[in-house]
Design a protein around this nucleic acid. Structure first.
Length: 424
DNA sequence: AAATTTAGCAACCGCACCCAC
DNA sequence: AGTGGGTGCGGTTGCTAAATT
């Protein structure tokens, strides 16, 4: 492939090359870095004549040429660590890769996306139960009117409330792997409630005939209160040519304010409500949506029994004027769906498959790597040490305590997420 | 054996942040 | 304070090898 095209950086006058790197180009880049060190990538082209933009040089170096890169399939320990980290960090590939010496964010990202697809095919949950069970729902929001959603998490041995980052992949996958939505996602209640703006609903039994609200909605976990038109949480809505439903990811304006990045002692997530930009789901998600539609017969499913073995327990719904969700025991229900309501369709997908433990998880999938070659100068010290250093061990769960959240509020607003079967 | 499909991976693109000027 | 370059990150695309028909 010898794509041409402007690319960025320019500067050389000639057309910058795109596509796969040749051995010669690699040699030039390696030589340059040896002489000048990393950084100032745009100078590579100026100084070496290499017809590559600085960005491409940096990427090539970071992902393939720099020393100590660990190539080949992920070990089972690495896979486990990735899953664990992803369950806590979401698609923060760079941060995940920081815990995996010799692995690049791109490599991990590719691995994860591949894993998502594979497990979708297999009808398996993304996370093993032991990880799912450690996840807990978000605490109620203390300031219903604030346009920002503040969350923060702390390391603690006494888990109370948990709020992992939103993750479109895991979420979408949780839907399409024919399981219940993950219990730890704040969008879980939102996803179910949004269609019922201004209505008292009993989820999920009443899913079936709503029309998506075109102006967005508001969800206040603390008040279990939904209002229309608040851009602050419009990020939960997904607008694309194929699907106008709910979005399960933080938008790009998500701002993570890390106090301690390495150990994740504290992290605050601000969702800037002033930015109405709503990111559409990724292509992967679109594929998954399409796949789900295919699985259910193009949305032609009319009635289907859904077994729901979880319950909603959002008890602190005082002061709510609209959209109050009442606690309700889940049970087998019959629901209807329509073609143009994919969200409903997804809700109808039965949950039948479970993966009992990590072993089965690991046994059923192993990375399909081309090789296990490790560079000769690899100084990778092994994952055992890494795991010891990792703050994400099972012994140190991450808790997501709400900013400014008082104990009363927290205690009075416990969800019944623990009863959820997790992502499955 | 050829054609088609699928999975995995490398690379690109757009956006956002940081920092020097 | 505004601007532009450099860099990093996450999402997406497209190619290729493997698998399947």
């Amino acid at each position: 492939m010898t794509n041409n095209g402007g690319g960025e950086g320019g500067g050389g006058g000639g057309v910058l090359k795109k596509g796969p790197w040749s051995a010669g180009e690699d040699a030039v880049l390696i030589d340059y870095v040896k002489k000048h060190g990393e950084g100032n990538w745009n100078a590579v082209q100026r100084n070496t004549g290499l017809q590559r933009c600085g960005k491409s040089c940096r990427l090539r170096w970071a992902n393939h040429l720099r020393p100590n890169l660990k190539k080949g399939a992920f070990s089972s320990d690495e896979e486990r660590l990735i899953i664990d980290l992803h369950s806590k960090l979401g698609n923060k590939w760079a941060r995940i890769s920081a815990h995996l010496p010799g692995r690049t964010d791109n490599e991990i990202k590719n691995y994860w996306n591949t894993r998502v697809k594979r497990r979708l095919r297999q009808g398996l949950p993304l996370y093993p139960n032991e990880i799912q069970s450690s996840q807990q729902p978000p605490p109620p929001h203390p300031h219903p009117q604030t346009p920002h959603l503040h969350l923060h998490k702390t390391i603690s041995n006494n888990p109370t409330t948990t709020l992992p980052l939103f993750d479109p992949v895991s979420l979408s996958s949780s839907l399409f792997t024919l399981h219940h939505p993950p219990p730890f996602l704040p969008s879980h209640p939102i996803k179910r409630l949004s269609p019922f703006l201004g209505r008292t609903v009993s989820a999920p039994s009443q899913l079936g005939t709503f029309q998506p609200d075109p102006i967005g909605f508001r969800f206040d976990p603390g008040q279990t209160h939904i209002e229309g038109g608040d851009p602050g949480l419009s990020l939960y809505r997904c607008r694309s040519s194929s699907f106008d439903g709910l979005c399960y990811e933080l938008p790009s304006n998500q701002h993570c304010q890390k106090v301690t990045d390495d150990d994740l002692e504290y992290e605050e997530v601000n969702i800037d409500a002033s930015n109405n930009a709503v990111r559409t789901n990724s292509g992967l998600l679109d594929d998954l949506l399409h796949e789900a539609q295919e699985k259910i017969g193009g949305g032609s499913l009319k009635r289907q029994k859904v077994e729901c073995d979880f319950q909603w327990d959002i008890s602190s719904s005082e002061n709510s004027s609209t959209g109050i969700v009442k606690k309700e025991e889940s049970e087998e229900r019959q629901m209807t769906t329509t073609n143009d309501d994919l969200l409903n369709t997804l809700e109808l997908i039965p949950s039948l498959v479970r993966v009992p433990d990590w072993c089965s998880d690991g046994c059923q999938e192993s990375s399909v790597g081309q090789s296990s070659v490790v560079s000769p100068d690899d100084n990778y010290n092994g994952l055992d040490h890494l795991l010891q250093l990792s703050p994400f061990s099972a012994a140190s769960p991450i808790n997501y305590d709400h900013v400014n959240e008082d104990d009363d509020n927290r205690n009075s607003s416990r969800y019944a997420w623990d009863n959820l079967p997790g992502i499955c």
